Simulated assay, not measured.
Amino acid sequence: MLYLCIVNQTASQNAEEFGFHAGDIVQQWLWDDDVDDSICTKIEDLTGEDLVDEDYGTAVDGVVIWWRDGDDEDTLADTIVDATTMLEDNGPVWVLAPKPGRPGAASSSTVQSAAKTAGMNAATPLTVSKDWNGIRLRAFGKGR
């Protein structure tokens, strides 16, 4: 049992729950000064690549969108569509939002609604750091 706890802790510390792999190019959208840089570092350590911004003009293997309450839901849907345009082979797409009770905390129903508008399903939020939750998006009909 102790071994399983160590494995789960290691997976979380290495950002493996995002579904990214070594060599993946991950694009982040809506980055701002309030993001949790430790999440960025964990993804970069896992992939061995620097995160690229929304101006990156080549195909990417995964996407992270930083979302905060007060941002327009339609803008989130548009951002999801724009971000997935550059995505290779249905790679992982994540919306990261501040946890409830934190400044900028966004309702998961807002993210779910925007995802649906963009043609995606939104999973149950997952804690990805002390202050941020992540919601994985998948195209309709693409499994769990």
Rank of each mutant, 00 (worst) to 15 (best):
M86S: 09
L87V: 09
E88F: 06
D89S: 13
D89P: 04
D89R: 06
D89K: 04
D89G: 03
D89L: 13
N90M: 14
N90L: 13
N90K: 15
G91H: 04
P92V: 10
V93D: 02
V93F: 01
W94G: 06
V95G: 02
V95K: 05
L96Q: 09
L96S: 05
A97M: 14
A97P: 00
A97C: 07
A97L: 13
K99A: 12
K99C: 07
K99I: 01
G101L: 14
R102S: 00
R102A: 11
P103K: 12
P103N: 10
G104N: 09
G104Y: 00
G104S: 04
G104R: 10
A105V: 04
A105Q: 00
A105W: 02
A106Y: 08
A106E: 02
A106F: 04
A106Q: 02
S107F: 03
S107R: 07
S108V: 07
S109V: 10
T110D: 09
T110G: 07
V111G: 03
V111Y: 02
V111T: 05
V111H: 02
Q112W: 15
Q112K: 15
S113A: 12
S113T: 15
A114Q: 05
A114S: 13
A115Q: 05
A115T: 00
K116H: 10
K116E: 04
K116D: 07
K116M: 11
K116F: 10
T117P: 00
T117Q: 03
A118R: 04
A118N: 09
A118F: 08
A118H: 08
G119T: 15
M120R: 04
M120K: 12
M120E: 04
M120L: 12
N121H: 12
A122H: 01
A123H: 07
A123Y: 01
T124W: 12
P125R: 14
P125D: 02
